[in-house]
Nucleic acid binder design. Structure first.
Lengths: 293, 293
DNA sequence: GGCAAAATGCAACACTTGTTTCATCACAAC
DNA sequence: GTTGTGATGAAACAAGTGTTGCATTTTGCC
């Protein structure tokens, strides 16, 4: 992943000239170099979403006799890395001194997300997922810094179906959608210290309407904990001046995955429908589009 | 090398009870653990100087269904080691194996963020931070799934000052702000596979205007890499059906922190100003507000 | 619009894989 | 010396491997 790898460079260099399927295969190999050595070609192709033959074609395209050469190369890379293993460990430690703010932050974030694996935290996540799974409608609220988390949750959920409503809007209309919320509907509110007053107000309104309140927040003493049925707590400490939302985002992704896995068939169907439309609309591309002059 | 490996321990424990040929096979496996995952059983047997059948017999002797389990175990060991030190430190709960989807996802995310601590990745982050620090104006672009990252970056930056412009808006006006961008201004674009066509189009426009392009993306062969001055690559793999943005969000937070730390005084002043206004507007609260009846 | 070329999916191919079976062997106990 | 038991080697097996040729689709160009 770090050393200069001639085959890797070669793939990158010739990437532009590849047809789409070869690019898909090449992209997967670049992003999962070790898998090449660890699984069979057919399985690799399956994971990359291409035909087995495409892997062979990629090898030939790169001027190699066959796919086995690609695998041999990656196997060798793994063997070599084992030698440089100890050396790398040392380097990691001594570099952590001077301008290690970035490293410190990243390691801290990784640790915080890892801490969510504790049984207590997992149980809270499961509880929230259970409640979300049974909901007729899910209203999602996250203001200011928490907007990113709320929106991401909503976005992923829209790809799966249409049960979520994002409480956001211009001109101060964020909460208006709650007007049509019923008792029994769910409100998922994301809020961290400092807590946006408006989020708390809307949450309280929702509670009075008899809605089920769920929260992603940052503390046992968050104002939301008192009025919520279940709350997921994630740390927001960061080595920087600002609270981090990476753990909260991770939680929201886990929730989406948990919901999808409860009804895999429906999720897949929803994704397929989304794919169809996005494809028809030419939403995505794999290369810088040629400009029309 | 000194990680606790249950299969390895098992082999050692039962070594004494093995017939000579099994011992030969077992000895070779203990001394060349990675080879197990990297070559076929027959070749391994050849190198170990035993019959192919002996490897199968060894597996059965150890109480496993077949040789493939031995290989799978060693492949997993290689995969885990590649996830870096943080990942291994995280794996304190080696007892509970394939438990929940939630735990797997969270551990995976933590490992991916930890992997951003590699020197190559850190260097890219520093390079981007350098460029951002010197910019007159920073335009931030992230569409669809990447909106959350782009918006979060922009939001934090607005608390520090007013150098960023978020390229987003209703009615398809997202890119309009670029009209007033000058050569030398910076565009930070966030995009992952599948790449939103519109993001690529706007990036290309910006490049033609002579702007400095910086990217947070997911691959060496992302279409953005070719037209960007610097790109930060972060993995988006997830155990779920959907790409993760947690590493990208972490990167954006690190960038904000890096920028703030370059001019700590200005950052503090910006924060103070923001605090003043938000306080005056009663934006935040620490308790559920009393409803006026 | 039509054509050539490129790209892709598919299925058959020859080969290797890990496994199993069975005959042979080694060696201890009687 | 015979016998019985477990260890070993060799061969046969189905399953899966990487590859190839061919039909089909897509693409670019006049």
């Amino acid at each position: 992943m770090l050393q200069d790898d001639p085959l890797r460079d070669h793939i990158i260099a010739r990437f532009e000239d590849m047809p789409p399927q070869l690019q898909a295969a090449a992209r997967y190999i670049l992003e999962h170099p070790q898998e090449v050595a660890l699984v069979s070609m057919r399985e690799l192709a399956r994971n990359a979403g291409v035909q087995p033959a495409t892997m062979t074609r990629l090898a030939k395209f790169l001027g190699l006799p066959g796919y086995d050469d690609i695998r041999a190369h990656h196997a060798e890379a793994i063997r070599l890395r084992a030698d440089g293993f100890a050396a790398r460990a040392i380097r990691q430690d001594d570099a952590a001194g001077a301008d290690g703010l970035a490293r410190q932050m990243l390691q801290g974030l990784a640790a915080q997300i890892a801490r969510l694996c504790e049984p207590a935290a997992l149980a809270r996540i499961e509880a929230v997922a259970d409640r979300l799974a049974g909901a007729r409608r899910i209203y999602v609220l996250g203001l200011r810094s928490c907007h990113s988390v709320a929106w991401h949750f909503h976005y992923v959920m829209t790809l799966l179906g249409e049960r979520t409503v994002h409480l956001d809007g211009p001109a101060g209309t964020a909460g208006d959608a709650l007007i049509r919320a019923r008792a029994g509907d769910v409100l998922l509110v994301v809020s961290i210290n400092p807590y946006a007053l408006h989020s708390l107000e809307l949450a309280e309104i929702a509670r009075e309407k008899g809605m089920v309140l769920l929260a992603i927040t940052d503390s046992e003493v968050s104002p939301l904990v008192g009025i919520c049925e279940h709350a997921i707590l994630c740390s927001t400490d960061s080595q920087s001046f600002f609270h981090t939302l990476a753990p909260a985002l991770a939680v929201s992704e886990v929730l989406c995955a948990a919901l999808a896995s409860r009804d895999r068939a429906a999720a897949l169907e929803g994704l397929r429908a989304a794919d169809r439309q996005l494809l028809a609309l030419n939403t995505y591309a794999n290369a810088i589009p040629r400009r029309r002059l």
